[in-house]
């Protein structure tokens, strides 16, 4: 068998991607661009409504902040886990993924209890005297960010543990012998080698948060809509299907554009020729 016959094995995957991803997108897109006046009407009205633009901005901001926090927490945790002995590392990796075995709705309801007026967070903050009366954390942008961070942290950590365990530890030892202290080794030697892993994790988290529905629906309440909850409102509550389609397309475009920019940015930082990005 010739080596390039293997490419036909890609067919089932290609067909299902075409059928289940691109076909629905085209189906959604077509009615919104069937003629210029419909197009202008749908997309124009989205961008002239300050409410809608604010929803888009909020969605984007929540995704950016979530990605940032997840990176900030995920990096040290995965560095620590990846450098443990094999047995402990496996146990910790499984524990990290454990929450994902529970239904997202159930996990978000748990946050309602934790973040509520009488929840443990408010009680704790009052006990140590930071606040005097219960703060409203629930049904704000903050609660959506908290829920999203919790939701996507395992994905980031798992992605990073993979990258970190591929690193040659002798490279770090070489840096140390050459006079680099542990912090400088982290900044100058470890992080630059992790760009691919960090990017993969960041894109997964960003895309996930941009398009998540359950978490903003449950933790955002009806005052803090994001794009996905806006789509639902347009389609299901108002029966405005074409408008929902247009918003969905805008969401797809903004997400895709952001991810392309992220990749380009990382490429600028990391100009290795063997870069797998």
């Amino acid at each position: 068998m010739r080596a390039n016959n293997g490419k036909y094995l890609l067919l089932p995957a290609l067909i299902s991607v075409a059928l289940f991803t691109f076909y629905p997108i085209i189906q959604i897109a077509l009615p919104t661009i069937k003629d210029f006046s419909t197009f202008k009407d749908l997309y124009g009205s989205f961008f002239t409504s300050t409410y809608n633009v604010r929803v888009l901005g909020r969605t984007f901001l929540i995704a950016v902040i979530t990605t940032f926090i997840v990176l900030l927490i995920g990096l040290p945790v995965s560095l620590w886990i990846a450098r443990q002995k094999k047995n402990l590392r496996q146990v910790l990796s499984i524990l990290i993924l454990f929450p994902m075995l529970t239904n997202a709705v159930v996990r978000n309801f748990a946050w309602i209890i934790i973040l509520g007026r009488d929840g443990i967070v408010n009680k704790l903050l009052m006990a140590i005297g930071i606040i005097s009366k219960p703060a409203s954390i629930l049904y704000t942008n903050t609660s959506i960010v908290i829920g999203s961070v919790y939701l996507f942290l395992p994905i980031m950590i798992t992605s990073l543990i993979g990258s970190i365990s591929e690193l040659n530890i002798e490279v770090e030892e070489a840096a140390a012998v050459l006079g680099s202290n542990p912090f400088s080794t982290l900044i100058r030697v470890i992080l630059p080698q992790l760009t691919t892993g960090l990017l993969t994790g960041a894109i997964l988290v960003f895309a996930g948060t941009m398009t998540a529905y359950t978490t903003p629906q449950i933790l955002g309440g009806n005052k803090h809509l994001v794009m996905s909850t806006l789509i639902y409102q347009q389609a299901m509550t108002l029966g405005n299907w074409n408008s929902a389609s247009a918003i969905a397309l805008i969401l797809i475009l903004v997400s895709a554009l952001s991810m392309i920019l992220m990749k380009k940015g990382v490429k600028l930082l990391d100009r290795r020729p063997d870069n797998a990005n």
Partner: peptide, 12 residues
């Protein structure tokens, strides 16, 4: 100074 079996060069 140290030279390692894997050379341990900084790949980036």
């Amino acid at each position: 100074g140290m030279v390692f079996q894997s050379y341990a060069l900084f790949p980036h």
